[in-house]
Design a protein around this nucleic acid. Structure first.
Lengths: 133, 133
DNA sequence: GTGACTGCAAATCATTTGCAGTTCG
DNA sequence: CGAACTGCAAATGATTTGCAGTCAC
């Protein structure tokens, strides 16, 4: 994989946020500093990063595909209101996940995805308003 | 929700298989007995069933959306070779899942999806051949 | 120099929608 | 009858691809 300004910018942008942006979101984040950055380039690079194991695809949910710069296995929470995906840091949940991971080899599996569905903090705090995001 | 021949055929077809077919697959299953069945009708009904809680959308993986006639929470395995999704019946895994489910209310979440990624039995048994499915 | 990379525009393909006609209750 | 349903064809929209030019090694 060759270096390129775009490639490094995309990977850095993804790694610099704790959210799990879509290709489109990453593109908007970068377009200000790189006005000619093409959305196709973002897609192409994310695909390559994912194949190279540098980032994780997060596509449970059926909406837009999202990407995670953190490649460790960890549980995600998807908000049914706004579609955001965030990490779940609950100690007990993480512990259970580690126990599940131990079962993987015996089941002939390599990876494990855990996704909770629940309204996120952001939507909770604005629950009484009409929210459009 | 009104009854219709198509609606009942689609739901029965989905419930009669242990696989997790896509809309397209259901359509092909049914087209023989209902030559005029429209793919749009399949999509529309699956969407309604899913909203009504009669079936489950299985869309982890980023490929085609699949549907599951079994609405109980249960772990899925996706095969990276052929894209098939099957149920995982491992006792320990199911036990861990039940423990995870108990954590959901405290986390403000309602549902939990667990997806393993590993080569399925079908692909294993044909491992040495060039498989195209 | 050559193969990988980019931007752009056009293509793809799963899914959704508009519409006119049909069917259920 | 009126609302919900269907088939068909066309629209949508995220993602991918073809191509010609550019850049890294």
């Amino acid at each position: 994989m060759k270096r390129s300004v775009q490639r490094e910018a995309i990977l850095n942008a993804l790694r610099s946020v704790k959210t799990h942006p879509t290709a489109e979101e990453l593109h908007s984040m970068l377009i200000e500093s790189m006005p000619h950055l093409s959305l196709a380039t973002v897609y192409r690079n994310l695909e390559q990063f994912s194949n190279a194991g540098l980032v994780q695809k997060v596509d449970c949910g059926g909406e837009l595909r999202r990407f995670d710069g953190n490649i460790a296995m960890h549980p995600h929470q998807r908000c049914p209101e706004c579609g955001r995906v965030c990490d779940v840091e609950d100690t007990q949940l993480v512990k259970l996940q580690h126990e599940m991971e131990k079962l993987l080899p015996a089941l002939g599996c390599r990876t494990l995805k855990i996704e909770l569905c629940g309204v996120c903090n952001h939507c909770h705090s604005t629950e009484t308003q009409e929210v459009t995001i």
